[in-house]
């Protein structure tokens, strides 16, 4: 009886959420898109909650959002420690990987020969399952965050390299000619014309790498960590059937991942405000 009632409630929630959103979609105005997205998200969460209760899903399989929130609230200290451990690897690897790729791109940019060879290889490597090097890196650099940073470096390097090299070619021929008529040196034209013109491409690479970095670090932690870290917590708590803790950890990962991406996007908006896609 509760089952049928619950399913009816689920459909009712869906219907109400959908009704509001179609109304919003017809109206036009600023910020409405955000409201529609939030309503959609809340509808999904509510449906999840109702479905778990109505269908009496075992908590070991799928805890309701309320249980996850409760778990999140009671274990913030563990989550915070895990977050710090994982993010040490993410941030170090991200900065070193993207930085190295950026410098390499500028170095090989002067040689057409190297560019012609590196781009196809870079594109190929970007398609490879690089997370697979995680066990090797853990073997080489030990269990602490250094091995995670190493995985992140390798994962970030090629997407960033390909994007930066492409970006450095983005300046118009006309603009380059103008620099030449100004008798600008290589460095002047690089700093004043070509790097700013490469901005949108560079930020595209940075954005791709920001999600890759988190994935790399968490997967690397499956292969061995000190007893702290998000990947470690997820794999052990799955084994102990504490699924609500796993979901709390995933919530942290989602928030951290979105915040990281959002931060890069925000810097992009500030730095490349002149580009058509930002207006």
């Amino acid at each position: 009886m509760t089952g049928t009632f619950g399913i009816a409630a689920i459909f009712a929630v869906w219907g109400i959420g959908w009704f509001i959103n179609t109304r919003i979609a017809k109206a036009r105005g600023k910020g409405l898109g955000l409201i529609a997205a939030i309503i959609f998200g809340l509808t999904l969460l509510l449906m999840w909650e109702l479905a778990v209760i109505a269908l009496e899903v075992s908590r070991v399989l799928l805890p309701p959002p309320s249980a996850i929130a409760a778990r999140f609230a009671t274990s913030t200290d563990i989550l915070w420690a895990d977050f710090l451990q994982t993010f040490k690897g993410v941030v170090m690897g991200y900065m070193l990987g993207c930085g190295a790729a950026f410098l390499t791109a500028i170095a090989i940019d002067r040689s057409d020969f190297l560019k012609a060879g590196l781009l196809p290889i870079g594109n190929l490597v970007a398609a490879l399952p690089i997370v697979g090097i995680a066990p090797i890196m853990v073997m080489w650099y030990g269990f602490d965050w250094h091995s995670k940073a190493a995985v992140v470096i390798v994962m970030c390097f090629f997407p960033m390299l390909v994007n930066t090299v492409e970006g450095l070619q983005a300046a118009d021929k006309m603009q380059k000619d103008l620099m030449r008529t100004y008798a600008a040196s290589y460095w002047q034209s690089l700093l004043k014309l070509r790097l700013p013109a490469a901005g949108p491409f560079i930020f595209n690479g940075l954005k791709i790498c920001s999600t890759l970095a988190l994935i790399g670090a968490i997967v690397a932690e499956f292969f061995g960590t000190p007893i702290v870290g998000m990947g470690f917590r997820i794999s052990t708590e799955v084994g102990r059937m504490n699924v609500d803790m796993v979901w709390a950890e995933i919530t942290v990962a989602a928030i951290a991942g979105s915040a990281f991406y959002g931060l890069v996007a925000l810097i992009e908006r500030r730095a490349t405000f002149w580009h058509p896609s930002q207006r």
């Binding site: 959908w18 959103n21 179609t22 919003i24 979609a25 017809k26 409405l32 898109g33 955000l34 529609a36 997205a37 309503i39 959609f40 998200g41 999904l44 399989l61 799928l62 997370v131 999600t211 988190l214 994935i215 968490i218 997967v219 499956f222 998000m230 990947g231 997820i234 794999s235 799955v238 699924v243 796993v246 979901w247 950890e249 995933i250 990962a253 989602a254 991942g257 979105s258 990281f260 991406y261």
Partner: peptide, 29 residues
């Protein structure tokens, strides 16, 4: 249009979740 406004942001947000971290649990489920 309603779907564009409500679903698209979540499609993008879904990818900032490191889904590979979900893998062990999804497989158990």
């Amino acid at each position: 249009r309603a779907m564009d406004m409500s679903v698209m942001p979540w499609v993008i947000a879904s990818q900032t979740i490191p889904v590979l971290a979900l893998a062990p649990m999804m497989i158990v489920v």
